[in-house]
């Protein structure tokens, strides 16, 4: 369709309300975040007791020169990766299962999943802690390992928290993919069957490609969620575990910067997190486009 002069202006006018909301809700906070990250901005500066000092990239150089930041960053990436893969595997498996069982079984599965999904993170984490309590926990009772601390060893603690994160985030993946599988037209599957495709072949060559757009959404969502995990680590490992060995980036930022009133440094950690997530998302989308998916 040929564009006329003025079309752009009208389109812009139509988009203005959405743009205003976006700028107000996303643009301004990010602008403030970047701005604060360039200053020495502590409690004294907030309450007007001390003058502002412009540091430029000072907060960033402090952060990037800190070996601990890199260690925590590596830990966060590993932890998020495990959580994302776990969430996707569990979610997909249960979505497939849901399409193959009777109605009552499916309803039970959905109700249980929705329950997990609806539980607030703090409550869920606390309940898991109760279940895995060293002395009075149900799990230790069943396993006969009374006295075993699930939050002491670094890897056991990470594993427990990862399990909790997967538990509360798989329902989103499951529900989305179930809807996706259900939306695949019956004729397509029938045609594949008539052509003599095996179950595996149907799954890999028909269902998966059709689910691809949905998989992209749930993967990106999961990456963002799991990279930013805070509550579970903060509650379950009591603020980062023994000697801080279970810290992830968000808890680290909170402890080192916000609790310590170093808002400038905290903001710079926030900016770094945002940039990293943008890079991950962009790289993922690019890889998908290369493989021929129209987005």
């Amino acid at each position: 369709m040929p564009t006329r002069r003025g079309d752009g202006r009208i389109a812009f006018a139509y988009l203005t309300p959405a743009l205003l909301v976006l700028v107000g809700l996303m643009g301004y906070p990010i602008y403030q975040l970047v701005l604060i990250s360039l200053f020495d901005y502590g409690q004294e500066q907030v309450s007007g007791g001390a003058p502002l000092t412009f540091l430029g990239l000072g907060n960033y150089t402090t952060l990037l020169a800190n070996a601990r930041f890199w260690a925590v960053l590596g830990q966060t990436v590993g932890f998020a990766a495990v959580c994302v893969v776990g969430t996707l595997l569990v979610g997909t498996a249960l979505a497939v299962l849901a399409t193959r069982v009777r109605t009552w079984a499916r309803m039970t599965l959905f109700l249980a999943a929705l329950g997990a999904w609806a539980t607030p993170a703090v409550a869920g984490s606390t309940i898991w802690l109760f279940l895995f309590d060293a002395n009075f926990g149900f799990v230790n009772e069943v396993l006969g390992t009374t006295g075993f601390s699930w939050t002491y060893d670094k890897w056991v603690a990470f594993g427990l928290v990862a399990a909790q994160v997967i538990w509360c985030s798989f329902p989103f993946v499951m529900v989305t993919l179930y809807a996706g599988i259900k939306a695949i037209p019956g004729e397509v599957l029938e045609a594949a069957a008539l052509d003599g495709a095996s179950t595996t072949r149907t799954a890999t060559s028909v269902i998966l490609p059709l689910l691809r757009p949905l998989l992209i959404v749930v993967t990106i969502q999961s990456i963002i969620w799991d990279f930013k995990v805070f509550t579970q680590i903060y509650v379950m490992t009591n603020g980062g575990g023994i000697a801080g060995r279970n810290l992830v980036l968000n808890v680290y930022a909170y402890q080192q910067a916000f609790a310590a009133s170093e808002y400038g440094l905290g903001a710079s950690i926030g900016v770094v997190t945002t940039v990293l997530l943008l890079i991950v998302t962009a790289a993922y989308l690019r890889a998908l486009r290369r493989s021929g998916e129209a987005l």
Binding site: R9, F12, Y31, Q32, L35, I36, F39, Y41, Q45, V46, S47, G48, G49, L52
Partner: peptide, 27 residues
């Protein structure tokens, strides 16, 4: 059009070029 947007954004950036500070708890 583009110029206007740029000008508005530029002005906003210049106007608020420091994080907020409260008046403080001066007596």
């Amino acid at each position: 059009m583009r110029f206007v947007v740029a000008a508005v954004v530029g002005a906003a950036v210049l106007a608020g070029c420091a994080p907020v500070q409260s008046g403080g708890t001066a007596p």
